[in-house]
Nucleic acid binder design. Sequence first.
DNA 1: GTGTTTGCAAAGTGTTTGCAATTTA
DNA 2: TAAATTGCAAACACTTTGCAAACAC
Lengths: 136, 136
Amino acid sequence: MNERQQQSLMMQAGLRITDQRLALSALLFADEQPRHVTAEEVYDEAKQQGVRMSLATVYNTLHRFTAAGLLREVQVDPGRVWFDTNVSEHHHMYDEDTGQLTDIPAGSLGSVTLPKLKANKQVNRIDLVIRIGTRN
Amino acid sequence: MNERQQQSLMMQAGLRITDQRLALSALLFADEQPRHVTAEEVYDEAKQQGVRMSLATVYNTLHRFTAAGLLREVQVDPGRVWFDTNVSEHHHMYDEDTGQLTDIPAGSLGSVTLPKLKANKQVNRIDLVIRIGTRN
DNA sequence: GTGTTTGCAAAGTGTTTGCAATTTA
DNA sequence: TAAATTGCAAACACTTTGCAAACAC
C-alpha cells in the first residue's frame, strides 16, 4: 500500500494526517504482509527509523486506527495487547513459548454456530486462538 | 464438592493444606456451579467472609490451582486474568459492555480442524471467545 | 526440624490521563 | 483561527517479587 492510499484511508476515517500517523501507517501497512505488533514494538521500530514519536502517541494512534477498522486487537497475553493489520475474518495460533502469533485463515477450521442472543445484543467479534507449546 | 474432596484434590496436586487454600477452594468449588472470578473478586469475597488472606496469597494460590488443573485461565480482558472453575473443554461468551463471562458447552459450536504443527509442538489449549455487546 | 507457604510492602509491567505546546485543515 | 493532535510525566490497574515470620508435615 503506498503513501497515497494510506492517506486516503486515514482521511476516510476522519483522521487528520500527521507525521506520526503517516510514519506508523508506513510501518504497518507499507508491505501488504500481515503484521502482529505491540505498542512497544512499533514504538521501538519508529525510533530506529529516526521517527520522533512518544509512546502515548503510539497508543493513541493504534487505538484510533483500530476504531477506524484499520487494525484489530488480539488478546492472547494477559497485560499486553497485540494489534493485527489483518482485519479480515481469521483466527490465530499463539506459541506460548516463543510468543509468536500466526494467522489462520477463516473457514479452514470448520464452522461456528452462534448461540442465541438477546434481541438488543450483537456479536462484536469471535476470537479463536489455538495455543501451542513445546511437547514435554 | 465437600471439604474432604477439596483436600484430596489439593493433596493429589502435591499442595499442602493451609487455611487459606481451604478457604479459597471453599469459595470456588463448594457449590458445583462453574464460577468465573478475578483475583481481586476472590480476595474481597474472602475478606467479607472474615477469612484473613493477603492478595499476594490469592494470586499465589490461584496460580497453583491452575497449574494443578483445578482452574483454567481465561483471557478476555487486557490487564486482567479470569479464572474459570470449569476446566472441561468449553468456550466462552464475553459481554464487552457488562464484563459478564458465560460458558458455552464444547461441541455446540461446530467442529474445529487443527492446522498441522511441527513435530515437537502440541496444542495446549483452544480458546474460543464470542464477544458480544449492545446493538448500536 | 525442614521445607513450604504466608503477608507485607515495594517494585514491575503495560496502559491511560491531564494539560500545555504544537500542528492541521 | 478553531479544533485536533502531540509529548511529557504522572497516575493507574493489575500482577509479581523478596524476604522474614509462621506453618505443615
